[in-house]
Design a protein around this nucleic acid. Structure first.
Lengths: 197, 197
DNA sequence: AGTCTTTTCAAACGAGCGTTTGCGCGCGAT
DNA sequence: ATCGCGCGCAAACGCTCGTTTGAAAAGACT
């Protein structure tokens, strides 16, 4: 039942957003009683933060592993490092992980203040990427690296369903965000160019 | 009174977000009665959409004028076009316009569905930029231009107070988002490089 | 079988929300 | 002086929200 609440909450919020999903929506989707959320998680907020922590840890774990592999090469290039940052966030495409990604994306923008505080303060995993880029491009001042990483995350996070619908309206359907492999290459090309400028 | 409600709603929402500001917050900030919003605007939503439309029109009007000026040069470069896109959104720094910017930024992420629908469908002003870039770089396929414009808007919109606090946490205070002129140049350099890659 | 713990359930609680009501004030025009 | 009207106001309405309650049901263990 705990797990069912977790998955229902995650899926409903990924689809409709944090503001539009009530405790009653979640418990009825999970075929549970209204009181179940408070019984298992203490509060609705605690459930949502639990989901957020679990999925963020999963994502950052993959990033960390890819970064380690990239740095283990004998001559790592900045593309490899940036790829380790963005690949999991673009290529997760089995249904459960895609849902998890949409949940995390929403949490960034519309999540409760407690989540936003975590996002602001937990920068350890990003600091690893700053260090990695510094080791590969010693000429780049650290301040410059942080700024460009900030811009790159802007590109990466600009990936909500609403953003895509605008993209398709603008291109008359020529741009297909469903082709994740090409999206990854396009994104990587764009931000790599920004770093090498 | 209409104007007072407009400005109070805009300022409070820019500061605290759409979800945390109630009709009672707005009317009490404007020294008005709780019924004033419905009397002057019909509903709270109508007021918020009114604010959104007014400020978006103001912003896009400035962009349009700058774009026209850029294209009037005898040999316009892509930097000039991109600058017309991002300069108003970065350099507005008198207090009222800064508030307006924060309101618009929030509307993009946490605004009510009606606003998000406008953002998705009103792409005319962006189409002008696609055309302009096409006229300057005829070699770039239109699909490519739209993708890169999409990425550029990602960089531009990654500008909330929360994003900046993370940036400062990550850089140990070395990055100063308050220096708007430098931020403009940094941003322009990053996205221009992406277009020329 | 009996006891104790864990889980499920219907019902209600209190608070906050956006909105509506209906009365009365003040002011300009007749 | 009074009528009409735009406006301001206190109060209440109906609704949804997250949470709590207390008892019934299910399960575990001796």
């Amino acid at each position: 039942m705990r797990r069912r609440l977790f998955l229902s909450a995650e899926r409903l919020i990924a689809e409709h957003g944090f503001e539009l999903v009530s405790s009653r929506d979640i418990t009825s989707d999970a075929s549970a009683n209204i009181a179940a959320i408070n019984y298992y998680y203490g509060s609705k907020l605690a459930l949502l933060v639990d989901i957020f922590r679990a999925r963020a840890a999963e994502l950052n774990g993959e990033r960390k592993a890819l970064l380690k592999a990239a740095l283990a090469q004998q001559a790592p290039r900045i593309d490899d490092i940036l790829r380790a940052l963005i690949e999991p966030a673009i290529l997760w495409h089995d249904p459960e992980r895609q849902t998890a990604l949409r949940y995390l994306n929403r949490a960034r923008g519309e999540g409760p203040p407690e989540m936003q505080a975590i996002l602001q303060n937990d920068v350890g995993h990003l600091a690893r990427f700053v260090d990695a880029i510094e080791s590969v491009c010693p000429a780049l001042p650290r301040e410059e690296i942080v700024w460009k990483l900030h811009f790159s995350l802007g590109v990466l996070h600009h990936n909500s369903a609403a953003d895509y619908r605008r993209l398709e309206n603008l291109s008359g359907g020529a741009c297909d965000p469903g082709d994740r492999e090409r999206l990854l290459e396009r994104t990587l090309a764009f931000i790599s160019a920004g770093f090498l400028a």
